[in-house]
Design a protein around this nucleic acid. Structure first.
Ligand code: ZN
Ligand code: ZN
Ligand code: ZN
Ligand code: ZN
Lengths: 136, 136
DNA sequence: CTGCCGATGAACATCGTTGTCATCTAGTGC
DNA sequence: GCACTAGATGACAACGATGTTCATCGGCAG
């Protein structure tokens, strides 16, 4: 697994350091989105010495390399390991769990609207928020 | 028009003050989203004495009352006067113009996905980003 | 007109995030 | 293995957006 992580980091144009492996491993273990500060706290608590600055930089770098999705909530950003193909999200607002979705209907809507209004699409976003079965 | 503004403020449970009328008027004059700081700067430049704190408070209050939509970009939030019924957005990334959209297909997608996965929906978001005809 | 209570705004506090820089280390070439 | 260098780290400072305080002001009901 460390090998896989190294590969992923390599692909992102990053050196495989102990800290980055640690961050990636922590991300693999969760299906919700984490804040840089929270992640830093957890790693520290788990006895993994990683600097806050490094956590920020690693998360940002991985997000730039499209390994992570970024969610903005209450003025801070949370990161989550996400599939590499285009997708949308279904987020539980209670437990924070995130499920990835395909949405052909949305893709079609985007094309239709853009075409009709003469826009050149550069991106779009479509996410659903709710409470999952376990939490309600 | 000052009367209309007063009505809107009343509806939001806010007193109609000179500063709030000024902020509302400034929002009516633009179809893009503004930052609290930018708006504050513009009002100052236009000779309208309004405190930064007040601009923040007014924008937040109006957004809480669903008079404004909030966009988050680059770590800061921008506000825009928006229609009062549910809608989505088509945003030009060059000139900042925002168009409001209906999206039956999206509404249906939301219901379908939530139903199939056993979620109780609390909200959703769907916006398209691109370059408008004039800007390309 | 008066009084009350919400509203204002300057100063200050907070918080997430990014910049700095001396030090360290992964990965390369030998 | 070994030395070298570009990239990475982390304690700390700095920054900008936003929240809070509090003395003062003014909208608006009576
Ligand atoms: Zn849940
Ligand atoms: Zn899509
Ligand atoms: Zn445009
Ligand atoms: Zn909708």
């Amino acid at each position: 697994m460390a090998v896989q992580a190294d590969h992923a980091l390599r692909d992102a144009g990053l050196r495989a350091t102990r800290q980055r492996r640690t961050v990636l491993a922590a991300l693999r273990d969760r299906s919700d989105a984490v804040t840089a500060q929270d992640l830093h706290g957890e790693l520290r608590a788990a006895g993994e010495p990683v600097g806050l600055t490094t956590v920020y930089r690693t998360l940002t770098a991985l997000a730039d390399a499209d390994f992570l999705d970024v969610f903005v909530r209450e003025g801070e950003q949370a990161f989550r390991l996400c599939g590499d193909q285009h997708h949308h999200h279904l987020v539980c607002e209670v437990c924070g769990k995130v499920e990835e979705l395909e949405a052909d209907q949305v893709e079609q809507w985007v094309r239709e609207v853009a075409g009709r209004r003469g826009y050149q699409v550069t991106g779009h976003r479509a996410d659903i928020f709710g409470v999952c079965g376990e939490c309600s």
